[in-house]
Design a protein around this nucleic acid. Sequence first.
DNA 1: GCAAGGTC
Length: 828
Amino acid sequence: MKLVVTEKNDAAQKIADLLGASKPKADKVYSTPVYRFDLDGEEWVTIGLRGHILEPDFAPSLVYKKSKGWQGVTEEGEVLPAAIPATLPKPPFKKKKPFTVDGVELKAWKMEALPYLVYAPIEKLPKEKEIIRSLKNLAKKADSIVIATDFDREGELIGSDALSCIQEVNPDAPVSRARYSAFTKEEITNAFENLVELDTDLASAGASRQDIDLIWGAVLTRYLTLVKFAGYGNVRSSGRVQTPTLALIVARERERLAFVPEDYWVIKGAFGEVDDAFEAPHETARFKVESEAQAVMAHIEGKTKATVESIEKKKRTVAPPVPFNTTSLMAAASAEGLSPARTMRIAESLYMDGYISYPRVDNTVYPSSLDLAETVQRLVGNPAYAPYCRELLSKDKLTATRGKKETTDHPPIYPTNSATPDDLPAAEYKLYNLIARRFLATLSEAAVVEGTKVSLEVGGETFIGRGDVLVKQGFRAIYPYGLKKDEQMPALEQGQQIAFGGATCTKKQTEPPARYSQGKLIQEMERLGLGTKSTRHSIIERLYAVKYIMNDPIEPSQLGMAVCDALDKFAPHITHPEMTAELESEMDNIAAGSTSKETVVTNSRNLLADQLGELIPHSEEVKEALADAVAADAFIGKCPKCGKDLQLRASQKTRSMFIGCSGWPDCDVTYPVPKGKVESVEEPCPTCGMPQIKVTAFRSKPRIVCIDPTCETNHEPNVEVGECPTCKAQGKTAKLIAQKNPRTLKRFIRCENYEECNTGYPLPQYGKLTATDEVCEHCGAPMVIVTTNRGPWKLCPNFDCPGKEQDKDAKKGASAKKGAKKSTAKKK
DNA sequence: GCAAGGTC
């Protein structure tokens, strides 16, 4: 039996489809799908991994031997390459026990352990145990192995890891490597007819990246976390990609902080009458000196006529966009309000459901194997695209635009099936629509815009009016994204006298450079070689998760700035994108065989040891800087009782947020905080003068709330919502009252007879509450209406209402149906 | 409790 190992299940299936003479049989080994088929009388099996199946981590235990020059030796007797440098105290010799120095176990998160952690040996541990089990099971029966992972450095490493698992159970089977860069019959057949050897140097290059990332990431993350320990769950991370990315954001913020705005004045004139009215600015777009602007205003004072001095018309073409790769998709979706991380989550799901092609690509040129006309034909299924598709199909030949990046890994992102708004949830359709329209746009003609420039003279001063009109739609007919509105100029003639309705002079200020949007940041990361198409969005998410950055456009927190400054001062290697560039070139050397993984990793360890040597003596300074930053980020306002700072804090026990006085335990002032994301607001409450906070509940617009629960602005009258069903069943009558707990601000419904009857229901915590006359048909609780910015919502407040279960079942049924539809969509 | 890189 021949065993073919691919990087993912999808690839295993496709290769089986393309190589097998007849349809391959889908099977499972344990829970892993595999594909069996016959070829030239031999039995073949393909199995897909799940990316990396092994993961490097610090070895759980080791001993250091003096006889080996203080190099680490594992329990199995393997001598490890990294030696403890002569400058560090040597650990006591302890056999088969965790490595300790002065009683400190070096696996533990301890400041004293960090210099040793730099040199700690690394092992590869299983990550996908189920897959490894299935792989080994098949490997036992295999006569030969073909590694058919992706054709890149990480693919070589993934294949090499798979091979090490295979050889544990079957060391003798011959191994070869298939290299392909597209899933076409020709390419795959060719790859399997011309098998090569696994490139172990290339795999080592990938493995050195893994080790260096782990060592630097773990050491610096532990340093930052331990230097100012703030409780479990408060990790302050650092890494080869995330820290330079943070540095970009911080540098931009510093530019903004250093920016000195300059005043300037703008003069705008009103011309024409009624329907033909338009505005035009003075030919000097910005007056830096106010008196110059006033002189112009004086010249035109009282004038009522303007003369058309000249009219210039120029046509310019706007080229259709190039095909989407991952980066350009994320940038375009970011402009439409979908974050890169969300875009990738949605794209993955659209891909799995058969609506779009593989979403992780660098390529921006459609391969010749892609049938453009057939893809357009499929999109006819959506009535919104159908007329445009037919127009495209009526052409003799379809030509597509080409981007600058041409790789052969996958085709650029294009729609593989038609979908309508009824087929998909709103956000999914939004992204699908963008991808489908982009695809059609890449096959379209250029748009033509006619620009008009009109010179107008008033009292010896010149004004310039401009208009832009789309005269030929071209690709714009199907791709309206980023389209500017037409600015039509009325028909004018040279020498014509038109009405002048006076001018305004407005004082303005120059603006600092803009903060990065997530889309722009992704593009900048790509330009600097930071991260990959598959990881950039998650790196940004990580920076949000550790609270180094906030909002979009992205702003660094005080903590983010402090971390960046501390590292830049004492460990500058990690804050610059050059670390990645240098690593890339070292990896090229490893792949070329001119250096070894051991040399590169050891050099990197020495460099990290140097930087840690700078950080540790300055721990007090770093600690203070981080502590001040954390306090500044948490600052909400001043305590009304003791005057110290009120801070947003997390309860140790429940992790829920509250506002507490920094003078605790001397001062016990606290305030509750509503659910959702909480940010500080500068302006105090206009009613009571207490600090306010901005609260953003899940999927809602932010609202500004006074922190004082007793403030009038937080007062909500009690609302009678109906009769208590429990009391009614006992022959009594009692009202149910919706009310707010004055201390916690939690809103709930309770029976007015609560001393005897404990009937109560929870309520949504925000939105206007209104009572109805209706009673829930399932449980008899009164129905209420909650009106949020998403509109009114009628609900039964009973958490245990039997109707809720039925709702859930109905939803389950709907999604099962949808699943069935999805699988048919995929078959097509 | 760390990173970044694959993929789900």
